[in-house]
Amino acid sequence: MDTISIRAPSVSPSGTKIRRSLRTRLPAAIALLPTALIVLVVYIGCMLWTVRLSFTSSTLLPKLDWFGVTQYTRLFANDRFVTSAENIFIFGALFISGCLIIGFLLAVFIDQNVRGEGLFRTIFLYPFSMSFVVTGVAWQWFLNPALGLQKLVRDMGFETFTFDWIVNQRMAIYTIVIAGLWHGSGLTMAIMLAGLRGVDKDLWKAAKIDGIPTWRVYTSVVLPLLRPMVVTAVVLLATGVVKLYDLVVAMTLGGPGIATEVPAKFVMDHLFERNNIGLGTAAATMMLITVVIVLAPWVYVRYVRPQGSHA
């Protein structure tokens, strides 16, 4: 999962005067040049290359013929891709909201001046450091009805207890969400905790004097103050959602059936395993378009448009 922090740039018209001179701005432009080249060659270049390949009949190696929109017709007729698209929205919604809620709660509770704070924090954060290839096996075992929780509870005498989501086509995607929450809420907790530590001390004093219950202060005063943190966390989690792959491969390999397939896995399988670069890049292009549609307005409002007033 990639990590990104985002907040609104501070708007300060007073800086305009200083930053006006073209001569002094030249070193800044030079400093940005390598990144600009990378954006141009690597990011834009690779995006265009991907889009171009989606209109070809490429299989194992890319070739630049013209295949029309055939790959897209195939893509939309492919029920695995359709399922993948549905799954990513289910997963995305539950994963992002779940991480925010759990992360926020953990942060609030950890912030109650508890003993062993460092220990708790490390426990909540450690899943982030581990490769999913094997932690996924541990989850797979625990969720498996014959090995894990269901067996444990039944062995304790509750013969009818059933927890078989991972082998159930309708429920399996939610087991991916559970493991995702395990992996992602620690980092969200850290970000939220950082936010809580930034809240003004006087605010707490004032609230205490006014006799407002602590939970009310958190929900009505602190939470709105944490807005930049929430945005940071959401973007960070969203990149993880779009790239979701390892987790699914380690836990279900897309199964039972195609119940837990996701778009990134569709792309990877077709690019590498199935030697179907044409279809794989068409799926990648669709993902790209979706991300652009969802994000472009936000990126524009936050980062591109403020140029005029900010600098």
Binding site: V39, V299, V304, Q307
Partner: peptide
């Protein structure tokens, strides 16, 4: 530093594209 304190033409557009790039599965590259 260059993006926050210095005004360079097109820098924010570049940054916007860079940000979108964070959402693409690496394998495509």
């Amino acid at each position: 530093y260059a993006l926050s304190f210095w005004r360079v033409k097109g820098a924010n557009v570049m940054f916007g594209i860079l940000l979108l790039g964070a959402f693409i599965p690496y394998q495509v590259f």
